[in-house]
Design a protein around this nucleic acid. Structure first.
Length: 547
RNA sequence: GGCCUGUUAGUCAAGCGGUUAAGACGUCGCCCUCUCACGGCGAAGACAGGAGUUCGAUUCUCCUACGGGUCACCA
């Protein structure tokens, strides 16, 4: 029985030959140097930072070069599938600025190289698998889980390398007659790749991020089709990325160890190997040691974590870019108002090692990003966040839109904009006091006589005119200070503290606490303006009672 | 355990055989200032260890240590 007959016995329904698909999916007509890249998530619906990191890298490489970015769904493991998962992945990525030129979409697939969901491509995989069988490069294996377990145990006790290879590969050297007999008994089988590698040999390989790597040849006969006929990742990767004409594969470096196998597969199938970019893992501090961020343990890996906290997507985008390309920050400092997309992304600036996720840095980046937003954009984005995660605040923002925008506009714009919040969840705490719902006399004034405070507040209330400009307004406070025995000049007070009860700074703080409830606030003049005269005076009057 | 890979300040990082070893975040100090935030100035703080190659190693090679990854009919 020759291999052709075995191939027919294994794949009776597969009529097409590889040529058929080669013609169906011709090489793309793209300019020299255009990158075709993809994102290939499982449909778990769980979008995490790793997706963004890989997605942004692929997206930049593709779009910057005039190439193509597509989305392929790796749904070969049914156990992983979550209903609605594809949609939430697409929406999640889009939220962070990653859009696809072709691939799986919320309303079905689009593009000429589909289908883009692997379970819909089974026919294609079988065609290439059949070819490998014909050529003697793949064979069925009937081992049960128990048998594989036994092999493994023997290998452990004999201290040999673990895996299905060489003499341990029990079905590797069976005759086609033996195989055919087993097959006709109806036994379940998987298709294994017949490796011609030797673990004593090394192969050299260039990864665009890691540089030259030297890896041991693969000698394991890995499974390429599971017993349900669905391919494993490895086989699907080879077939899909070839037929979809991918030029650059961006993936996590946990794939590096299986690279030797992938190289063998591409060679055996007669495919040209794409370029690889293996990205180091994102780590976090765990006690005193670093470890890879884990989907199960670390909430900060999930994008939902950032949405809940209210990081604008632009901030995360910006942060990821600073992690990916070390020169991004310098570029950003030199071009503060340019769009992030104008930055020239380069894989050469990517770090081969994993980097630690740094929330403090993210906050700083976010602060700068938010500072560049207009008050209207802050209001809109804040409202969207609040509606979902702080509905009461959302209601207030909606009702008091004008006041909210004015409050958010204080200190915004200009050369040195305020940078007082990085996330939407911080906003209520910073400026919530402008709304009566969130106003309370939180901070206490210490170290001054109550009577002095009251005297100052009464004088201020009496003199306050909402038509005063900033200078006049502050002049009045200085006058009040002097009349109450406080120095209008801070330097003067510092030089002779014993001559005064305090300075104009202290007087200002009395008024500030009365009006905002806080010792610290944005510009007090602007706050009074937006509160209006009556509300300002009411708060001052009420504060006297509190005292 | 085998195999792979990485290691420059607390963190992110420049650096490609000769540098006073950039810069950013964080920390601390000073200045500006009605508070805060911003901004300005400054300080502390690093080439994991050991061999070798070299006139000269952060940079090249090897070993050790430590970190990370991977060894599925998961991706």
């Amino acid at each position: 029985m020759d291999n052709n007959l075995l191939a027919e016995a294994l794949f009776p329904d597969t009529a097409e030959t590889p040529d058929f698909y080669e013609n169906l999916y011709p090489p793309r007509n793209l300019p020299e140097g255009a990158v075709v890249s993809r994102l290939a998530p499982s449909p778990t619906g769980f979008v995490h930072l790793g997706n963004i990191i890989q997605g942004l890298t692929s997206e930049r490489m593709s779009h910057q070069s005039g190439g193509v970015l597509f989305l392929r769904i790796e749904d070969t493991d049914a156990k992983r599938e979550v209903k609605g998962g594809v949609r939430s992945i697409i929406e999640g990525l889009s939220h962070y600025g990653i859009e696809f030129d072709e691939g799986a979409g919320t309303d079905g697939d689009f593009g000429l190289y589909g289908p883009y969901r692997q379970r819909q491509r089974v026919k294609i995989y079988h065609c290439f698998a059949k070819q490998l069988v014909r050529e003697g490069r793949a064979y069925p294996c009937f081992c049960t889980e128990e048998e594989l377990g036994e092999i493994r145990q023997k290998q452990i006790s004999a201290k040999e390398n673990i895996g299905y290879y060489g003499k341990w590969a029990v079905w590797r050297d069976k005759t086609n007659v033996e195989i055919s007999e087993k097959l006709s008994s109806g036994a379940r089988w998987v298709l294994r790749f017949r490796s011609q590698g030797d673990s004593k040999n090394k192969i050299k390989f260039t990864d665009l991020i890691k540089g030259g790597v030297e890896v041991t040849e693969n000698d394991i006969d890995h499974v390429i089709l599971k017993s349900d006929g669905i391919p494993t990742y490895h086989f699907a990767h080879a077939v899909d990325d070839h037929l979809m004409r991918t030029t650059h594969v961006v993936r996590g470096d946990e794939w590096l160890p299986s690279l030797p196998f992938h190289i063998q597969l591409f060679n055996a199938l007669g495919f040209k190997l794409p370029k690889y970019l293996h990205i180091g893992p994102l780590m976090k501090m765990d006690g005193t040691s670093k470890r890879k961020l884990s989907k199960r343990k670390d909430k900060e890996l999930a994008l939902s974590f950032y949405r809940e906290k209210g990081y604008p997507p632009e901030s995360l985008y910006e942060y990821v870019l600073t992690v990916l390309n070390s020169n991004y920050e310098d570029w950003r400092n030199a071009n503060p108002s340019s769009a992030a997309g104008d930055f020239k992304f380069s894989y050469k600036k990517m770090n081969p090692a994993g980097s630690l996720f740094d929330e403090a840095k993210l906050n700083d980046v976010s602060k700068n990003v938010v500072a560049m937003f207009s008050a209207e954009k802050v209001y809109n984005d804040l409202l969207i966040w609040a509606d979902e995660f702080d509905p009461d605040f959302g209601k207030v923002l909606r009702r008091e839109q004008q006041k909210a925008v004015l409050a958010l506009a204080i200190g915004r714009g200009g050369k040195k904009p305020r940078k007082d919040f990085a996330l939407w969840s911080e906003v209520k705490d910073k400026i919530g006091f402008v709304f009566d719902e969130y106003f309370s006399y939180t901070d206490k004034i210490e170290g001054f006589d109550k009577s002095d405070i009251i005297e100052v507040l009464r004088a201020f209330a009496k003199s306050y005119d909402s038509d005063d400009d900033r200078e006049k307004w502050f002049e009045k406070i200085k006058v009040i200070s002097e009349e109450a025995g406080f120095s209008p000049d801070i330097k003067e007070y510092k030089n002779n503290p014993s001559l005064f009860k305090g300075s104009v700074a202290d007087v200002s703080s009395f008024i500030r606490v009365a009006v905002t409830g806080r010792l610290n606030s944005p510009d007090l003049y602007d706050i009074m303006k937006l509160l209006g005269k009556s509300a300002t005076l009411r708060r001052i009057t009420n504060f006297e009672e509190v005292l």
